[in-house]
Write a protein that binds this DNA or RNA. Structure first.
Lengths: 142, 142
DNA sequence: TCTGCAGTTTGGAATTATTCTAAAACTCTT
DNA sequence: AAGAGTTTTAGAATAATTCCAAACTGCAGA
């Protein structure tokens, strides 16, 4: 019985996932894929990712981490969230959903999509198309 | 018949507005107030503001521009919008509303509040309170 | 298997937005 | 006009990210 989430525990699966996305499976991209594309919903910054990789023994230049994140984004494997603190966070949850943001820590939490409905979204103005929609509820410790 | 928008064409009115907000009316704050608190709805960054001030013959340190913006924000005279490009933009429109963002230029445009309704906003998690809500529709030139 | 080249990675410098700092310049009250 | 407490300022410092040119690597073909 296979779960919906793809398990990229080994390089073979990660590699084919990358190839399907049009990315050459380099050592660095494989490491990132195994860490981020395992089906868990998370939000991670470039620096956090670098640290987690390092903890797994995969050190790579910060520029490479940024490169990977951008490539994964273009390939539709990750979605950037801009409204967060200072740094851009990458969201492994590709379903439509929204976020709580703890403005103190910068931490993001998914909002259950059932809790919010956007019944009437305005059409994009002439000459534009909607790239994405971000609803962020900024939270402060009470 | 006075319009709803306060006209801060002269320093007297700007000064009293600042005092009411608990801010000492310094030359720099007066200049910013006259430029931003005239009732027009706009979105402006620190650098843009500095340039507009300079164009009016009011030069001031960029640090002062940032100071002013923060103080105006704390005083409830401006609202920061974070979801925009790289820089924080300050919104002179204090009514609840949302934004289109041109991701190319970073330009924000208000979304008519009648066009969007957020019927069921999720409650803030235990121990938190909602500071603000930002709905941003990111646009790309077609 | 070997080779070459386009595609990748890398460290460090460069950029951008913003904050910090300590000193000089104000504002307000007395 | 003087003192105290605020503000402003220029420039240094920080943080996230991008740029760069050189070194490296995956893979297609000989």
């Amino acid at each position: 019985m296979k779960a919906r989430s793809v398990n990229l525990c080994n390089n073979k699966e990660a590699a084919s996932r990358l190839r399907r996305a049009g990315l050459r499976p380099t050592r660095q991209r494989l490491a990132v894929a195994r860490l981020l594309l395992d089906g868990r919903d998370r939000h991670i910054s470039a620096e956090q990712l670098r640290d987690e990789l390092r903890a797994k023994g995969e050190t790579m230049a910060l520029a490479t981490v940024y490169n990977c994140l951008h490539q994964f984004e273009s390939a539709g494997l990750l979605r950037p969230v801009h409204a967060a603190g200072e740094a851009v966070l990458y969201d492994t949850n590709l379903r439509e959903h929204h976020h709580f943001l703890d403005v103190e820590t910068g931490e993001l939490t998914d909002i259950d999509p059932a809790m919010v409905s956007l019944p009437s979204l305005p059409d994009a103005p002439e000459g534009f198309e909607t790239e994405s929609i971000e609803l962020t509820v900024r939270l402060r410790r009470r």
